[in-house]
Amino acid sequence: MRKTLIVAEMVARDLLRRRGALTLLALVPLAFYLARHDDKVGQSIRFATLGLSWTVSTLALFAGTAAKGAEPRLRIGGYRPGQLYAGRLVALLGIGLALGAAYWAVIVVDQDLQRPGALAVLIAVSVVVAAPMGLLIGAVVPRDLEGALLLITLLGLQFLMDPAKSAARLLPLWSNREIGTYTVDRTDAGYLQRGLLHAALCTLLLVGVTAALTSVRLRRRRHVRFSSAA
């Protein structure tokens, strides 16, 4: 546990040092929120949470690709792959939830919501799914540019695809639409339950796949043995 927290602290410090990029990313949900604030209030909340997901997943992508150079040295120093991955995830969840809490306060003050608790769940789910999604993309792509393009594609599909279609359930942020409908439109609890179930399954899948890839990439190799000359 101690090593996991040490990794989390290192990742958080590295991300917080990038003040310019972090500030711009933190403003993305606000831009999404204001884009639909005047004409479609409900959509503005959904857009804000999707913007938050994009921000957190982008931070996770940067953290994942940046860690590839340092992880082999930490592995030699005695850190296990699970500790390295868990540390990154804890740091990203901490930053994402802190940012999400700020946006929750902004929306609650700005709008007359009947279900502020459901909004908190929606924001938390958006962060919890986005962090391992960004780490998975960072684990499978070689550079940040390819990962950013992939994230943009996923977010575009999330905006454009009809959530009622079966194919939409394959998108990792489908739960955002379901919980958002429950929060804004005050529908029955079935939307909340489906969203939470989908988010839990997606998170487990994303975490499991990325942890397995990290373990394979950082697996210990047998030491090279030199044969003595005859």
Rank of each mutant, 00 (worst) to 15 (best):
V140N: 05
P142R: 12
G77I: 02
L170V: 15
Q43G: 12
N176T: 06
A66F: 06
F159C: 07
G20F: 14
T181S: 04
R225W: 07
A26G: 08
A199Y: 00
G117Y: 09
V141L: 12
Q111G: 03
A31Q: 04
V90I: 14
G20T: 15
R177V: 07
G208M: 05
E178V: 03
G82H: 01
L92Q: 10
T65E: 10
N176L: 07
L52V: 07
L5S: 05
E178H: 02
A212V: 07
A63Y: 12
R177E: 07
R177W: 04
D185P: 00
E71W: 14
G51F: 13
S166G: 07
L170G: 15
P81C: 09
A167L: 12
S227K: 10
S166H: 04
F159N: 08
V128Q: 11
P132N: 11
Y33E: 06
Y85M: 11
F226R: 09
A67W: 02
L160C: 09
A26R: 03
L119K: 13
M10G: 08
T153S: 08
W174T: 13
R177Q: 07
V129S: 01
Q158G: 09
D39F: 05
T55W: 09
I76Y: 12
F62C: 01
A148T: 07
S215E: 06
L151D: 00
L196F: 06
L30N: 04
A148F: 12
A167I: 15
P132L: 01
A148D: 00
R2F: 04
S57T: 04
W104Q: 04
V127M: 02
A21K: 02
A189D: 00
A124T: 14
P29E: 13
A21L: 14
S215G: 09
A70D: 08
V129N: 02
G82S: 05
L84V: 07
P81T: 10
G78P: 04
R221S: 15
P142S: 07
I123Y: 10
V129F: 01
Q83L: 08
V129H: 01
L149C: 10
R186K: 03
G180P: 07
L160H: 07
G87E: 04
G190T: 11
G117W: 11
P163V: 13
V108F: 06
L218H: 00
L5I: 15
L201G: 01
V216Q: 06
F47I: 02
T214H: 12
A48T: 12
T210Q: 12
A212Q: 03
L201N: 00
S215A: 03
A8H: 08
A139R: 11
D188L: 00
A101T: 11
D14W: 02
I137T: 13
L34P: 14
I95N: 14
G64K: 15
K165W: 03
T203P: 03
G134Q: 08
A130V: 11
Q193M: 03
I45D: 05
D39H: 09
L52H: 05
Y79I: 01
Y191F: 13
V109F: 14
V56T: 09
R169W: 00
P116I: 12
L34I: 15
R225L: 11
R17K: 06
W104H: 08
L93H: 13
D144P: 02
L205V: 15
R220Y: 03
T183G: 02
R80T: 15
